[in-house]
Simulated scan of single mutants.
Amino acid sequence: MVKMSDVAKRANVSTATVSRVLSKEGYVSEETRNKVLKAIDVLGYTPNRLASNFRKSSSHTVLAIIPDITNPFFSEVVKGLEKVAAERGYHVLLGDTGNSLNVERDLMELVREQLADGVILATARVTNEEIEKLGRELPLVVACEYFDGISIPTVSIDNVVAAREATQYLIDCGHRRIALISGRFNIVLNRDRIRGYRQALEYSGLPVQESLIQEGDWTMESGMNAMSRILAMDQLPTAVFAASDEMAVGALKSLKAKGLRVPNDMSVMGFDDISLSEMVEPELSTVRQPKRELGELAIRMLLNIVEGKKLERTQVILPHRLMIRGSTAPPSPPHGGGR
Rank of each mutant, 00 (worst) to 15 (best):
M4D: 01
S5L: 11
R10K: 15
A11R: 06
E25I: 11
E31D: 14
K35G: 08
V36K: 07
V36I: 09
I40P: 05
D41H: 14
L43Q: 01
L43H: 02
N48A: 10
A51K: 02
K56L: 12
S57V: 04
S57G: 12
T61H: 06
A64Y: 05
I65E: 08
I65P: 03
P67E: 10
N71E: 04
P72F: 06
S75A: 15
G80H: 08
V92C: 08
L93H: 07
L110G: 01
E113I: 04
D117A: 01
G118T: 10
A124I: 09
V126S: 06
E130Y: 11
I131T: 09
G135S: 15
E137W: 07
D148Y: 09
I150R: 03
A163H: 02
A163G: 10
R176T: 15
I178A: 09
D192S: 15
G196Y: 08
Q199R: 13
Q199A: 11
A200Y: 13
G205Y: 05
Q209A: 10
L212D: 01
L212G: 08
I213M: 10
E215M: 04
A226Q: 03
A232P: 00
M233Y: 05
D234T: 15
L236F: 07
T238Y: 07
A242N: 06
S244Y: 03
E246D: 12
E246Y: 03
M247T: 01
V249C: 01
A251G: 11
A251D: 00
L252H: 02
K253S: 13
V262D: 06
N264R: 13
S267P: 00
V268G: 09
G270T: 04
D272W: 00
I274G: 03
V280F: 12
E283N: 13
T286I: 08
R288Q: 14
Q289R: 04
Q289I: 10
K291V: 09
E293G: 07
L294V: 00
G295W: 10
L297H: 10
L297I: 15
K310I: 13
L311C: 03
R313H: 12
T314Q: 14
G326H: 11
S327A: 13
R339V: 09
